[in-house]
């Protein structure tokens, strides 16, 4: 095979894959009739509520570590006072959405891919079809919408907990007064900082759920196939989040 033909084949394959994933997500998002409200409610709990502890703990330690880093680094050019503002801006713009998204990816993309993959290899998906139920509507649509709706809420919670992590360190170890720290945190925050982070959260939620569903639906046979689908879902979700974060940050702030 000539190099040009090889490159052409790879490009065509990438275009084909992007098209297939786009169609899959589009069908998953907009096949709403009949609407499976019970399935959506279950996924809101699974993806949103049950992810709160891990997202919250991640944000708490990240906010606390960020405060220590900025205090220590800022001391080199007499800028230790900016700790509250930079922790707040860093959390809501970047670290809250990205780390929250990555933690949800680790927890949720893997579980969605494993669950759907297992259903596929045990013929449960075939059973759904024979019971006049579209697997896209029953399995994919509720997961996509639950992730799009709950990850921004998780990001918002993570932002608050992260800022409070910084506040804890700032007031206990770095000598900030409590009221002054909180006032400084709020003073430099703009509404777009918060909103952009929430939009990122929705986008990352979609990436996480879409990765889990896509790889789960394409799971190979047996335990090995499900394991491979799970691994692929987490890797794709994590890389997708980081790439989307770069693109969205460029769109929002450049």
């Amino acid at each position: 095979m000539t190099p040009i033909r090889l490159v052409g084949r790879i490009v065509l394959r990438i275009i084909g894959a992007v098209g297939a994933v786009t169609l899959f997500v589009g069908r998953g998002l907009f096949r709403l009739h009949p609407f499976h409200g019970r399935a959506l409610a279950g996924q809101l709990v699974q993806i949103g509520w049950l992810s709160l502890p891990v997202v919250g703990l991640t944000a708490l330690f990240t906010g606390a570590a960020l405060a220590l880093q900025i205090h220590s680094g800022g001391a080199r050019f007499q800028a230790s006072d900016v700790v509250p503002a930079i922790v707040a801006i860093g959390m809501v713009r970047e670290l809250g959405p990205v780390l929250g998204g990555l933690m949800v990816a680790a927890r949720v993309a893997s579980s969605i891919a494993a669950e759907i993959g297992t259903m596929k290899v045990t013929e449960q998906i075939d059973a759904l079809v024979t019971l006049s139920t579209d697997p896209m509507r029953w399995l994919v649509t509720p997961r996509l919408w639950a992730a799009v709706l709950t990850v921004p809420v998780l990001v918002a919670a993570g932002d608050i907990i992260g800022i409070m992590g910084g506040w804890l360190v700032g007031t206990r170890s770095l000598g900030f007064g409590s009221a002054a720290y909180l006032a400084n945190s709020a003073a430099y925050l703009e509404s777009w900082d918060v909103l952009s982070g929430l939009i990122k959260g929705a986008a990352f939620g979609l990436i996480v759920a879409a990765s889990g569903c896509w790889w789960g639906m394409r799971s190979g046979r047996g335990a090995e196939g499900v394991g491979r689908a799970t691994k692929s879902a987490v890797v794709a979700a994590a890389v997708g989040i980081l790439a989307a974060n770069f693109v969205l940050t460029g769109l929002f702030f450049e």
Partner: peptide, 20 residues
């Protein structure tokens, strides 16, 4: 096929019961 699916039942080899 949708009409057909409403009028038939199937027993799968492994049962294919929904775990959840």
């Amino acid at each position: 096929r949708p009409d057909f699916f409403r009028r038939f039942g199937m027993l799968f080899q492994g049962g294919a019961l929904f775990d959840s």
